[in-house]
């Protein structure tokens, strides 16, 4: 007799039939009629078993197909998400560049105004000083003109480096202001779930600074 295992629970009918027919086969005392009846029963059971096999194969194929189509759909959706993510990243980079350019333009405008105001103030001051200088040193007109011209040339030469220095100052100031604002935003936000990615504000700010340099 076959040893009963846990598998027998699902196949108990089939196993019971096997046991039964084995007993009949091993019993030589059976009549021809009994063998015939057993054989007929076996034939019917075999047809049933074949139908069950067809059913389970058909079900198996169908379930496999369902799995496969779900898998394909998931892959497709995954690809779509990846493409959207790529597009978003690209837009994000473009936005960052635009913001940086705007910041630089704003700083540049401010720097230009301040540079010109400063130079104008220096120019006006120099004109005032010139008169004082002339009366004090008692120089002739040519020398006086030379000193005046040299001073104004130096002022003019300082225009570009001064403007650049002031612009860089304002750009740096804006970066530091952005960093502070981002840090404050992060500190205000609620704690995230474990495992959720959180972009650090300094990373964002450093990214902007990297783009500007």
């Amino acid at each position: 007799m076959a040893q009963k295992t846990q598998d027998d629970v699902a196949y108990s009918r089939e196993n019971d039939l096997i046991v039964r027919y084995r007993e009949i086969l091993s019993d030589e005392a059976r009549s021809k009629e009994e063998y015939r009846e057993a054989f007929e029963e076996m034939y019917k059971q075999y047809i049933k078993l074949l139908d069950d096999t067809k059913l389970l194969t058909s079900l198996g194929d169908r379930l496999q197909r369902k799995l496969r189509s779900t898998n394909l759909l998931l892959k497709q959706q995954s690809e779509e998400i990846r493409e959207i993510n790529e597009a978003l990243n690209k837009t994000n980079v473009e936005l960052k560049l635009t913001i940086d350019e705007l910041t630089r333009a704003r700083a540049s405008r401010k720097a230009r105004v301040i540079t010109f105001l400063l130079l104008f103030a220096l120019f006006a001051f120099s004109e005032t000083l010139e008169d004082q200088f002339d009366s004090f040193l008692d120089e002739d007109a040519a020398e006086s003109f030379f000193y005046s011209f040299a001073f104004k040339t130096v002022l003019f030469a300082l225009l570009t480096p001064l403007n650049s220095f002031i612009e860089k100052f304002f750009v740096r100031q804006t970066i530091n202001k952005d960093k502070k604002a981002l840090l404050q935003d992060v500190q205000k936000e609620a704690p995230k779930e474990k495992g959720t990615f959180v972009e650090r504000p300094l990373d964002r700010a450093n990214g902007m600074a990297a783009n500007r340099s």
Partner: peptide, 16 residues
């Protein structure tokens, strides 16, 4: 919603 092939056999037995 979904069942695998071995579950299909058990479902058949339950129906029997």
């Amino acid at each position: 919603d979904y069942f695998n092939t071995s579950s299909a056999k058990y479902i058949l037995e339950i129906l029997r």
